[in-house]
């Protein structure tokens, strides 16, 4: 258990900057998700933390220790790889025991820890099998088990759920969360899926092209995105972004207005709300709500409305957004403008 700190960490590959001056503090026991599109540098940052990549500049600390120059094995971290990276020639037991044997842990201690991990992950009957005899989900659990028995200072997870099917993913998500809560180990979790980020992280760090965009709780990122990228990345369906002039009562020219589909209200526009006119193009009925595709001029918008609202297609109607749910961004810098 320990804190993890990135101080101005940069990674350069020849001419490309993969991670640009990343500064981030992760508290002890925190579940931090590093999220962003492909190539944003999240995996590189994780690998630098693990010691599998060298930092070009900056410092990485685990606890109080600067670990930049330490070998991966000396950092006391455990990693769960996207491809699991199990030792194919060893049984599940040996896979779990390997890390402990390398530091000459006494045999009964190894046995205790491995049995416990197997129990927690519900794979005790698989203990003698080899990886090629296991399913994808089982292999993933072995990868987790390998990390658990190490009792490290931090868990590093590199998109561990990417290779699972959707149903399994949802279940395993919950299991990993529960595990982390029970063990209280600092966890750095990398994913490209914002749903995973939102549901799992104590805090989320959004990255784009090597640069940290915003780090905060899921609620903070949802309600107060600091720039257009974060605003569009978090939340599904994505936030609507239009020139401010399009929405009456919104900001001034040179600004962008953003509002989430789920905050659109049919009609209204009195008092404190901003409003706009738009024609209904397509309505998707979801059972508990409707997804309404709107068009106004060149703009295409999305609204999530209660099923009771009547939105016949082809009809232009007025829609409004509560002022506190309206986000304003500078059109040039793309940064949020706080009213």
């Amino acid at each position: 258990m320990a804190t993890v700190t990135f101080e101005n960490v940069t990674k350069r590959f020849d001419d490309t900057v993969a991670v640009d001056e990343l500064t981030l503090e992760i508290s002890d026991g925190e579940f931090l998700v590093l999220v962003g599109p492909s190539g944003c540098g999240k995996s590189t940052a994780l690998r630098m933390l693990a010691g599998l990549e060298e930092t070009t500049s900056g410092r990485i600390l685990i606890g109080d220790r600067v670990v930049n120059n330490l070998a991966p094995g000396a950092r006391d971290v455990a990693m769960v790889f996207q491809s699991y990276a199990l030792y194919p020639h060893m049984t599940v037991y040996d896979n779990l025991a390997f890390g402990l044997r390398n530091v000459r842990t006494p045999k009964d201690e190894i046995n205790r820890r491995v049995s416990k991990a197997a129990e927690v992950l519900d794979m005790t009957e698989l203990i003698k099998r080899k990886p090629k005899q296991l399913s994808g989900g089982q292999r993933q659990r072995v990868a987790l088990g390998r990390a658990i028995v190490r009792q490290p200072k931090a868990f590093l997870m590199d998109e561990p759920l990417s290779n699972l099917d959707a149903a399994l993913r949802v279940n395993t998500r919950a299991e990993i969360l529960k595990l982390q809560r029970d063990l209280k180990v600092t966890t750095v979790y990398v994913t490209h899926d914002q749903v995973e980020a939102m549901t799992m992280g104590d805090r989320i760090a959004v990255m784009k092209q090597g640069v940290l965009q915003q780090a905060g709780t899921p609620e903070q990122l949802y309600t107060k995105p600091t720039n257009v990228f974060v605003a569009r990345f978090i939340g599904s369906p994505a936030m609507n972004l239009v020139p401010a002039g399009f929405v009456k009562g919104a900001g001034t020219g040179g600004q962008l207005a953003g509002f989430r589909p789920e905050h659109v209200v049919l009609g209204g526009g009195n008092g404190d709300a901003a409003y706009f006119q738009a024609t209904v193009e397509v309505v998707e009925y979801l059972g508990d709500e409707q997804l309404v595709h709107l068009a106004a001029g060149d703009e295409k918008l999305l609204a999530k409305l209660p099923v009771e609202d009547r939105v016949p297609t082809g009809v232009e109607q007025r829609f409004s957004i509560p002022r506190d749910k309206l986000h304003l961004f500078d059109a040039e810098t793309e940064l949020a403008v706080r009213a």
């Binding site: 693990a50 094995g73 990276a85 199990l86 390997f98 390398n102």
Partner: peptide, 27 residues
């Protein structure tokens, strides 16, 4: 031999000798 197996071994605190005999050689 896939490289991530070596990375996993490195994180699992295996030194050069152990990596060779316990990972490389059997694989």
């Amino acid at each position: 031999i896939p490289t991530d197996v070596y990375e996993a071994a490195a994180i699992d605190r295996a030194g050069a000798w152990r990596t060779f005999w316990k990972i490389t050689f059997p694989l």
